[in-house]
């Protein structure tokens, strides 16, 4: 079943209460045709399990990797993703938009 905001934020709280390391990623700005609106959440635990989405699948992998770092360090991070280009295997948004994602640990 598709996760709702309700499921996502409750899951983050439940994971933390179970003693897991947890990070919350939030879309804070978008430009152009971004796939998910500002305020969308992805929650991640320290095993790399996640629920929700910030981009409809384009950059979730990268956000999860960064989130695991944030869980370790405790310092919030601002990530920015732009258009996928052919120069590298770098992740990006094929829709042509740009997004900023704020990742923070649940303490």
């Amino acid at each position: 079943m598709l996760a709702t905001d309700n499921d996502i934020m409750n899951r983050a709280e439940a994971w933390r209460r179970e003693g897991k390391g947890v990070a919350i990623a939030t879309v804070v700005e978008t430009w152009g045709s971004a796939p998910r609106p500002v305020g969308s959440h992805l929650v991640i635990d320290d095993d790399g399990n996640f629920l929700g989405s910030v981009s409809g699948g384009c950059v979730e992998g990268a956000v999860v990797t960064e989130a695991v770092d944030v869980i370790t360090s405790g310092a919030p991070k601002m990530l920015e993703f732009g258009v996928a280009d052919e120069t590298a295997w770098k992740v990006g948004l094929s829709c042509g938009g740009r997004i900023r994602v704020y990742v923070e640990r649940v303490d």
């Binding site: 934020m9 709280e13 919350i24 649940v106």
Partner: peptide, 25 residues
């Protein structure tokens, strides 16, 4: 995010009350 803030956010949603979380970047 502090766990108590997350819990309070969830509680407000459950109670059908609106709330705004302010994060200083």
């Amino acid at each position: 995010m502090k766990l108590e803030i997350l819990a309070a956010l969830n509680a407000e949603r459950e109670a059908r009350r609106a709330a705004v979380l302010v994060t200083e970047i």
